[in-house]
Design a protein around this nucleic acid. Structure first.
Lengths: 128, 128
DNA sequence: TAATGCAGGTACCTTTTTGAAACTATTGAT
DNA sequence: ATCAATAGTTTCAAAAAGGTACCTGCATTA
């Protein structure tokens, strides 16, 4: 996580990356945007490679950032639900466009594997 | 950088984060989107906190990912220009929406500093 | 009485990332 | 002969991030 230089006007990109810059945060936010409400274990199953520790940690940071809401039910075994806060919902367009681009980029990757490795015109050296 | 599990269909988010997930990449891409063409030193000045090493490394990775084009002029002292490739340009909407959200989020942060620290309604414990 | 399910917490360790500082190459200007 | 300018690279060390394995609490169920 980037440290916020307190009392200095930070650029918008920094402000965004400060709260989104964990290894799993965008995944978590994406799934919450898609499913609305998810329990801890459901998120864990949706993101198989995340460890319990990391999932808990990233969720806590997202909660502290005001993007995710944590609702604890007073029952045993425990039940905790996560959802986007109103402010978290404002991320949906960003998440959508990122996801869309990822889709596009993945297509591009797949396409490049089959084309012959010709030198792209952009690699040529320019002489002034 | 996340490792791409070769020959396994990766989700779009992973595909995107694989190439965008460096500490400085989004900054670099943003500035290139904004300015069109930038030399190494210009980028360095635009992002004061990045070190030479990191800037060079992230640029190299962006180039390898096909998002950034590197043009070397055969002159001394060296002159190298960076710009977005066509594929890199497809990121512009993503960068724009991220930047816009960052702007919004920064406003929110500023607003919270002055409001009294009341317990948000979302913090209440639910009982089923 | 013991095991089960859920949502974590924690200590310890390894890996990855990042930073600081010095070094390189080349040529024209002083 | 030396310096300046640009775009890096290299080495070593520090810091951050991440993973593993194990621990907790407690009502319910077998």
């Amino acid at each position: 996580m980037m440290v916020k230089p307190k009392n200095s006007p930070i650029c918008p990109i920094t402000a965004a990356l400060d709260v989104l810059g964990g290894k799993w945060k965008v995944f978590i936010l994406s799934y919450l945007a898609e499913h609305g409400t998810l329990r801890f274990g459901e998120l864990k199953r949706l993101i198989p490679k995340v460890t319990q520790k990391m999932l808990a940690q990233q969720l806590k940071e997202l909660e502290e950032a005001g993007l995710v809401n944590r609702r604890v039910y007073a029952q045993v075994p425990p039940k905790v639900e996560y959802r986007l806060t109103a402010h978290g919902q404002t991320l949906c367009p960003v998440l959508r466009s990122l996801r869309e681009w990822g889709y596009l980029h993945r297509e591009k990757l797949g396409a490049e594997e089959v084309t012959c490795p010709e030198v792209s015109a952009e690699k040529l050296i320019a002489v002034e």
